[in-house]
Design a binder for these strands. Structure first.
Length: 802
DNA sequence: TTTCCGCATGGAA
DNA sequence: TTTCCATGCGGAA
């Protein structure tokens, strides 16, 4: 027994320091519970079998929140009682399926709807005040089968003891007493239940919460069928009692949910084959003895009857069952990979029905979200009537249910049931279609819809790791964009670590995600960045070096007191705002294009450098002035990486006296170029073998241009050398450094450029200052820099590149 | 060239 | 290790 202070705000007895290991039903595991209020201590819930190390926890595959350890004990109860996890406040789906950030309070019981906490056995009241006998019996059977010691002897076997249920929910088990202590029995202890005050202003009576708690989606164990007990829980159909009762009552028939399956890419693809779980096929579909199988009639939710070929393929001394010819049906229901098809049976008649549930993040669902919202659906609607209506639709009963969101469109409702209507955050991928909001929270990006396209391998290790080239491109871009959001850990200064002459900043803490901003250049010079308020969506101008947290509002504007409130007007006109956003889009578009071209021919660092300077010329090509710098959103003062050395304003050529990063890098490279030539010449005179020299020179080349380390990575050593020479010739022949020259271009011949190799060598042997003066480069470098050049013969200092 | 068909492969549980 | 099953793949149409 430990002494801890309850962290539950609603706990009435903060002084109660008694904590016991208890059953955190919602989270499917044991936790330290406040003996007073039942709240899980700091929401950290352990599974029954004490897989208590964090690595044992599972994460929701969509929202990433920790769920439960996945042990039998936690899983079974989760799936039986808790519809698979913590109910989402919005869509009421299991947290296992919910992608919403509604499960936002961390982990465990505090993530319940309406902020209800561990004290709420209320969640079970969805079916009344107790579990019905059938479900309790199922629960007991299942738990007993998987965790024999979990139930007390009195509850083993047929346990239609629903009166035990209320204490069971949220009951406290003293693990110290006995591992086999029954939570049913222990739970009969009475303890106060204090509903947590609702944040949203909703009344917090159990009745109200009961109303909010629509039916949990119960993963139903298999009904009658061959081999029924072997079905994996993931195939158990999730359908509520209410739905079933309504269906059975209204139709005067019995709907028997059989199984469900999440559509894979190949299921939903054009092949038209739906792979059936073997156990399900053998349990619920007619037995087949020939590979060809037999035709199977299945009704869809619209009442259409489809005939699929139910067959199998021999596979490793086993069978692989498929439904062939499902494409028209899948398309009719507008299903995609990730959506779920639910096979049910209507009794009497033994008619097969195929319902569906759309994945929360499918594009269709999002579109539906929009339409549902425009339909006046209340935010936070947790209707589950979609499936009911879908099933009703089978028999022509579409629309007979009065749905809470007021829509009679079963399809709409079917989709809406899975949506996070409360949030309304369309997310990054749809931002272009919804007002072009640039500041989409990348952390809340919806999973892109899976689509069958031409694919290519992105890794040799796994053939399954496929994505189409566009996705791969997007991945690269979003990865880079993610870099935009990374901020150094707060209040921590890095330690500098030198590895192979390169300095790295090393932080004890990982970087944090910051808010995405847009950088622009001031007309007067310098930079500024723009950020959009998370509350009022107004854009605010900030200093370029401001580091922002992921959430930022006008109130956080400590730099400009005249713009530190959402009530204050925006810093720019609508037209300027349009330019700003357009600039951001065009920057992204350009990057995509440049990535495409990069795929065809990887550019060298020199190319990138040249491009950087050339970009300056392109800055005059009619781009909106505010957009000129959005092409360099990562530009940071002082950074000399290949991105940041691009001219900040993109305006014209640089003056000879310019000391910007580009010019300084160019000059530095020129210096090392000359030094290398001189060295090469002296080596040649000394008669050293050329091959060794090449190797050595290549090395010095890389060392001398640390920021351009990717130079000529695709070229053989000989080609490399030739290219360099050509580039050097191009640079020197015009008396200026031509950043447009391409070292790999065959047409850059020395003779064409008007200078022989010998004359180049001669010039390279001259002292650098003499050479600069002779070549007319004096205007490019100031006297002061020239003298610096003479003093300095070392390569650029490490750390000048990113 | 595209689509279909049947089976094989290999990752994951 | 075995089994399942998502999907790749080659040959046929």
């Amino acid at each position: 027994m430990e002494s801890k202070i309850c962290t539950n705000a609603s706990c009435r007895n903060k002084s109660t320091h008694e904590w016991k290991r208890g059953w955190a039903l919602r989270s499917g595991g044991y936790a330290d519970l406040c003996y007073n209020c039942g709240s899980a201590y700091e929401n950290l819930v352990y599974c029954e079998t004490f897989h208590s190390d964090e690595s044992g926890w599972r994460n929701c595959f969509l929202c990433g929140k920790r769920l439960h350890c996945g042990c039998i004990a936690s899983k079974s109860l989760l799936e039986l009682l808790d519809s698979g996890g913590v109910g989402c406040t919005s869509c009421d789906r299991s947290s296992l399926l919910c992608s919403s950030d509604q499960i936002s309070n961390g982990f465990g019981a505090s993530t319940l709807k309406s902020g209800a906490d561990m004290q709420s056995p209320i969640e079970i009241r969805v079916t009344g005040d107790k579990l019905d006998d059938g479900r309790l019996s199922q629960l007991c059977k299942f738990v007993e089968a998987n965790e024999p010691n979990f139930l007390p002897q009195s509850l083993r076997g047929d346990t239609r003891t629903s009166n035990l249920l209320p204490p069971f929910v949220g009951g406290i088990v003293d693990r110290e007493q006995s591992k086999t202590a029954s939570l049913f029995q222990q739970g009969q202890r009475s303890r106060p239940i204090y509903p947590k005050p609702s944040k949203s202003g909703l009344a917090n009576s159990s009745e109200t919460i009961k109303g909010m708690f629509t039916q949990p989606r119960i993963a139903r164990p298999p009904v009658d069928g061959r081999g029924k007990s072997q079905l994996l829980p993931r195939y158990w159909p999730r359908i509520t009692d209410q739905e079933l009762q309504q269906l059975a009552g209204d139709l005067n028939s019995t709907i028997v949910p059989l199984f469900e399956k999440v559509l894979s890419a190949s299921d939903a693809g054009r092949i038209g084959r739906l792979v059936l779980p073997k156990a399900c096929a053998e349990a619920y579909f007619p037995p087949i003895h020939q590979s060809e199988g037999l035709p199977l009639k299945v009704q869809d939710v619209k009442g259409n009857e489809w005939t699929f070929q139910f067959r199998f393929w021999p596979n490793n001394n086993s069978r692989m069952y498929v439904l062939e010819g499902v494409t028209p049906c899948i398309q009719s229901m507008q299903l995609r990979a990730g959506d779920t098809v639910i096979f049910s049976r209507i009794d009497p008649g033994n008619k097969l029905v195929m319902g569906f549930r759309k994945a929360a993040n499918s594009v269709d669902a999002q579109e539906c979200q929009t339409s549902a919202l425009s339909n006046g659906a209340p935010s936070g609607d947790t209707s589950f009537t979609g499936v009911v209506e879908n099933l009703l639709a089978v028999n022509g009963y579409s629309g007979i249910l009065q749905t809470p969101n007021g829509s009679n469109d079963p399809h709409i409702n079917a989709l809406a049931e899975n949506l996070n209507l409360a949030d309304g955050d369309i997310g990054w991928h749809n931002s272009d279609n919804h007002g072009g909001r640039i500041n989409g929270n990348l952390l809340q990006q919806p999973v892109p819809c899976i689509e069958k396209k031409k694919t290519r391998n992105i890794g040799s290790k796994s053939k399954r790791l496929l994505m189409n080239s566009a996705d791969a491109m997007e991945l690269r871009l979003t990865w880079e964009e993610a870099q935009d959001l990374l901020r150094p850990p707060p209040s921590v200064s890095p330690s500098i670590v030198t590895i192979e002459d390169y300095e790295f900043e090393e932080y004890d803490e990982p970087p944090v995600f910051g808010k995405k901003t847009i950088f622009t250049a001031r007309i007067s010079g310098g930079e500024e960045q723009w950020v959009q308020c998370d509350d009022c969506s107004k854009w605010r101008r900030l200093p370029s070096d401001a580091l922002l947290p992921p959430k930022w509002t006008c109130l956080d504007n400590v730099w400009d007191s005249s713009r530190c409130s959402c009530s204050l007007p925006e810093d720019m006109s609508p037209k300027e705002l349009e330019n700003l956003i357009r600039g951001g889009r065009e920057f992204k578009k350009r990057r995509i294009e440049s990535h495409k071209s990069a795929q065809e021919c990887e550019p060298s660092g020199l190319d990138a450098l040249a491009s950087a300077a050339v970009l300056g010329d392109m800055g005059d090509s009619g781009e909106p002035s505010v957009g000129a710098t959005t092409r360099h959103p990562r530009h940071r003062p002082g950074c000399t990486c290949i991105v940041c050395i691009q001219p900040p304003s993109g305006k014209g050529k640089h003056k000879p006296t310019c000391t910007c990063n580009v010019c300084m890098t160019v000059k530095r490279r020129f210096k090392t170029l000359m030094l290398r030539k001189k060295k090469r010449q002296s080596e040649r005179e000394a008669g050293m073998p050329r091959k060794e020299k090449n190797d050595h020179n290549d090395e010095s080349e890389i060392n001398g241009t640390s920021g351009l380390a990717s130079l000529h990575i695709n070229q053989s050593p000989s080609e490399d050398n030739q290219s360099k020479i050509k580039a050097e010739v191009a640079e020197t022949s015009t008396g200026r450094i031509d950043l447009n020259c391409d070292p790999s271009r065959e047409d850059m011949q020395p003779e064409v450029a008007g200078m022989s190799m010998m004359s180049l060598v001669e010039k390279a042997s001259l002292p650098i200052v003499t050479y600069i003066k002779q070549s007319g480069l004096g205007s490019l470098i100031s006297e002061q820099q020239t003298s610096q050049l003479m003093k300095s013969s070392s390569p650029p200092p490490p750390g000048t590149s990113c």
